[in-house]
Nucleic acid binder design. Structure first.
Lengths: 335, 335
DNA sequence: TTGTAGGCGTTATCAG
DNA sequence: CTGATAACGCCTACAA
């Protein structure tokens, strides 16, 4: 059943059927009803491919992320999908992992499907070196690119993110105000926002963000799991390094810190304060419940989608939008 | 730049270009190279809409789930997307929430996009009454439907799931073997698998699964959050109900149970054993770490996709595949 | 091995 | 207000 069949049954031309389908006003109420009845009776659905061919769009947006099962990214996807759908757009999901080569290949794949835009979720999409970001810049000449939680300069690249620098800066400061002075920082990503967070910590601690952190026992990069964090902290502790607070770039790492405290019989928050980042589900599941920095993911996603809608409507939209973080106080801090 | 432009630049016909693109063998190596060079030089990408129109497929599968930020569903989506992609299929994501009306509407939307198949993730898609499932049956006459973690009878409906009945049955039995006798069961879904799990519990406890559970203090339905579970259990405890083990239909509920034990100074697992379900991330984040029933999600998803590929290839495939659950032992049980 | 021509189902532009 | 017709870009018999 196609538009010709409908037009025949209704005794009108396909042009009229098309007008009815697309809510074009220039149709008599009478013929409109006639057509609508046929459509209803025979259960006709317009062919989306044909429509896509004609309009050069299937109202679809590609969403790329490293790993959709990561709680933070999963939430982002959920928000984005919902917002896109309420604007009449479908979401094509693509999980890329963390390697640039793979990402480049997948982005090409998405491009070849002619999505109306592509959303990159997670600041890990923005690499340190220009060359590694070139593929994104290139893509932006074909479709609008939106970045959630990261930023990249470019003509057709729209970044929405949270001010992670001040997020960590504020967290460290609150710890200091509550009496902590030896504050450890653990992080697991050197992405755009990863670097911002680290800088926030260093600045709040009065260190120079330009200095290398290699020799600094209070700053540590991880790419392992929860138990590695626990083991590492235990080692530090046994080696006699003193610390009364831990700030982490991610709630997962903070869980490791809690496990360490438990294993070494250290009281939280009396002897050790802990602050995580992302305010994810696990912050509420842990015991004690984790104080965490909320990076306003829902607002960021919502802004990202509305920016994109603005682009589609050829309105003037900002290239970069920044929200500010908020500390959600639970049980691992003394404030 | 379209196929005509390429054919002109390469001095061949569009048919030849098409053959080269689609890897058709009947092309001289020489002309093939000629065409390939033009494609490379001018950066030509075939138009997916036109191709879709001709082939009546854009190699896309719709994935529907209640909420992609739910850890369990997020994992499923991750596995499915990966498996589909390695088979050359894209994933169109659609989060529906839990209402049948909305789901029906969204399914129609997906259908109108002419996806090659639709995957329903989560047993909550299968309702108790036939009428409420009718829209799925109807859809299955248009495209193959796959159900992850649930089952529905139908000609073109392919179900892959875990044996949740025996998952819970086994968990309860292990508790009994380890000396528990007063075992509480908490659940939060009356979906297909929700009912199977409950039956497993009742059977293991020697109760009749057909009997209503209304008056039974040991069985409780929840649709609230972690803290409600904690409060409920505290009330039970204060009212003098004795229990030495809790089995839950979901890891989240089990976290509530752990929180209750902590609040009431009950030792886990010495005084109270707890077993969750799904073996999700939070099972490892909690303290003590949660013993949980693993329902083999990765295997289920992988099977779901390969079944679908079998359907596409018009092979003979099973309508229903069942995996068996496995108890992952951690710290909340005495075995 | 290569080319020609018709079909896929819309939308949109003109006439009328 | 309605209808005829030309795109849109690709695939694929069928012919050469």
């Amino acid at each position: 059943m196609n538009i010709y069949d409908v037009s025949r049954k209704a005794g009108v031309s396909i042009a009229t059927v098309s007008r009815v389908i697309n809510g074009n006003s220039n149709v008599t109420e009478k013929t409109k009803e006639k057509v609508l009845k046929v459509i209803e009776d025979y259960g006709y659905t317009p062919n989306a491919f044909a429509r896509g061919l004609g309009l050069n769009s299937m109202k679809t947006v590609g969403i790329m992320c490293a790993d959709s099962s990561d709680p933070f990214l999963a939430s982002a996807i959920y928000y984005l999908e919902g917002d896109l759908r309420s604007n009449g757009y479908d979401s094509l999901l693509c999980c890329t992992g963390y390697e640039v080569d793979v990402r480049e290949k997948y982005l090409d794949l998405l491009l070849s499907k002619r999505t109306d835009a592509i959303i990159l979720v997670g600041s890990n999409f923005v690499e340190g070196s220009k060359e590694k970001n070139q593929y994104i810049i290139d893509a932006s000449q074909r479709v609008p690119i939106a970045i959630v939680n990261g930023a990249l300069d470019g003509n057709n690249i729209y970044s929405t993110l949270c001010d992670d620098y001040n997020g960590v800066y504020g967290a460290v400061n609150k710890l200091k105000e509550s009496g902590c002075s030896k504050i450890l920082y653990l992080y697991n990503s050197k992405s755009y926002s990863g670097i911002k967070k680290l800088s926030g910590y260093l600045a709040a601690m009065g260190m120079d963000p330009k200095e290398p952190t290699e020799g600094n026992d209070y700053v540590r990069f991880f790419n392992g799991d929860i138990n590695e964090v626990k083991d590492y902290l235990t080692t530090l502790h046994n080696n006699g390094l003193e610390f009364d607070a831990i700030v982490t770039a991610d709630d997962n790492l903070a869980i490791g810190a809690i496990k360490y405290a438990k294993a070494c019989n250290i009281k939280v928050p009396e002897q050790l304060s802990i602050i995580g980042y992302n305010n994810s589900l696990i912050a509420e599941c842990s015991d004690p419940e984790l104080t965490s920095v909320d990076n306003k993911l829902e607002a960021v996603c919502s802004n990202c989608v509305s920016t994109l809608m603005g682009v589609f409507a050829e309105q003037e939209v900002p290239l970069k939008t920044v929200f500010s973080a908020e500390i959600i106080i639970r049980e691992t801090t003394r404030f």
